[in-house]
């Protein structure tokens, strides 16, 4: 073969290899391609359960478990436990892992009561926290439920009826649906039953609104992924896609 051709070929191969190495060193390229392959791998489950999707599921669980450990150490235990205990010499922090590791006795039949001891601590703390937050959280809800039922200078009859009267009727009928102390028999009970039925109708409207929002949420997730595949991944080597204004 012609020596010049050899030199040219070697130069071309070296250029391609240099470009490839530089590209491979750029994490962005890896991120794009790994993300695209992972996304398409998960989407294969839409056809049917298959080894590819199962493989990616296991990868996801592994990454998730690993990241949880990293985040717990890096953002919590290192700064809030290890540094105070070792660098500030606050020796009493040694009791934190002792108490924390009692949870692991849940796996032992004989010693599981120790795990319940620590769970009791957390359940008690949780209950106490709820007692603290009960009034600040729910009393404004009670106050806001007493709405004016007569028009004033700012609010006319139409707004009062469409808003405040409707609010009171819906609230009371929905509450009556959950009131089980009085059976739906006798005159009072039958009236309660009618109110409960109306409350159920209003709740169905609320659930319809929730369904509408649920559809919006789920579709948004898919649109976000398609946008990544089209604009970020395919758009990285098909310029027409990158400039579609997605």
């Amino acid at each position: 073969m012609n020596p010049q051709l050899w030199i040219l070929s070697a130069g071309a191969i070296a250029t391609v290899l240099r470009g490839l190495t530089a590209a491979l060193r750029d994490p962005q390229l890896w991120i794009l391609w790994a993300g695209a392959i992972a996304t398409l791998g998960v989407y294969t489950i839409l056809y049917r359960e298959n080894p590819v999707s199962r493989f990616f599921e296991h990868i996801f669980v592994g990454l998730s478990a690993g990241y949880l450990l990293v985040a717990t150490w890096a953002f919590n235990l290192e700064g809030r436990w290890w540094d105070p205990m070792i660098h500030e010499r606050r020796w009493y922090w040694i009791f934190a892992p002792v108490v924390g590791f009692l949870f692991y006795f849940i796996y032992s039949r004989r010693l599981s009561w120790l795990a319940r001891l620590v769970m009791g601590l957390f359940f008690g703390a949780g209950a106490g926290t709820f007692f603290r937050e009960f009034f600040p959280l729910y009393s404004p809800q009670l106050y806001a439920s007493f709405k004016p039922l007569r028009p004033d200078a700012q609010v006319g009859w139409a707004a009062v009826i469409l808003h405040n009267w409707l609010f009171v009727i819906v609230l009371l009928t929905v509450l009556s649906y959950f009131f089980f102390a009085l059976p739906h028999e006798g005159r009072a009970g039958r009236n309660l039953g009618r109110a409960a039925l109306l409350g159920r109708w209003f709740m169905m409207i609320a659930f319809g609104a929730m369904f509408g929002n649920t559809v919006m949420a789920r579709i948004s997730l898919f649109i976000g992924r398609m946008r990544f595949l089209l604009k970020d991944w395919l758009g990285s080597f098909i310029p027409w896609l990158a400039h579609r204004g997605m």
């Binding site: 709820f130 937050e133 009034f135 404004p140 929730m210 929002n213 649920t214 919006m216 949420a217």
Partner: peptide
């Protein structure tokens, strides 16, 4: 319950549509 109510700290939010 623990911050906005007891201390009056203003609170705003952003949720998923669900």
């Amino acid at each position: 319950g623990l911050i906005q109510g007891p201390y009056g700290t203003p609170f705003a939010s952003a949720y998923t549509a669900v």
